[in-house]
Amino acid sequence: MLRASLLAALLLMPLATAGRAQGTSAGTPVSYTVVDDAIPRPLTASPGDASRGRAIVANRSVGLCLLCHSGPIPEERFQGTLAPSLGGAGTRWSVAQLRLRIVDGSRLNPDTIMPPYYRTTGLVRVARAFEGKTILTAEQIEDVVAYLATLKEQ
């Protein structure tokens, strides 16, 4: 089991390296390493901020999260039913697991409907305005991860 995961991580490494080669300007992904079903190391040097993360999750045109998920954000009246509630996400998953699920859930399930929030490759017909950009920046991902980790109640 562990060996299989490590193998998967090793296979994914070249992709991560390729990401780094593209440079570090805003919107260009920094490299990361997948270990088992998680990304253990943060994408940024400074830690994420849970309150900023909450605002990103609540924002329909930034995080987009509540279009599909519901979550404990009562002031947002219309929440989606396409995906599981975000409530309890911090109990179900570790910070490292949450990070991979947001960065690129398709690495765990190729059929997932979860958009890859931190991927610019392997996408088809991306609108010009978003070409080469990730849905969220590394900082935003860390903020969202920090927020989701606080959601302990189902």
């Binding site: 989606g80 039913t81 398709s106 958009p115 890859p116 996408l123 991306v126 609108a127 849905i135």
Partner: peptide, 19 residues
């Protein structure tokens, strides 16, 4: 697209649910 979705994902697999 950037969200990596198809028509079918929403309108076949998730029709009737709330976006």
């Amino acid at each position: 697209g950037q969200l990596n979705l198809s028509c079918a994902i929403c309108h076949d697999d998730n029709a009737g649910k709330k976006l």
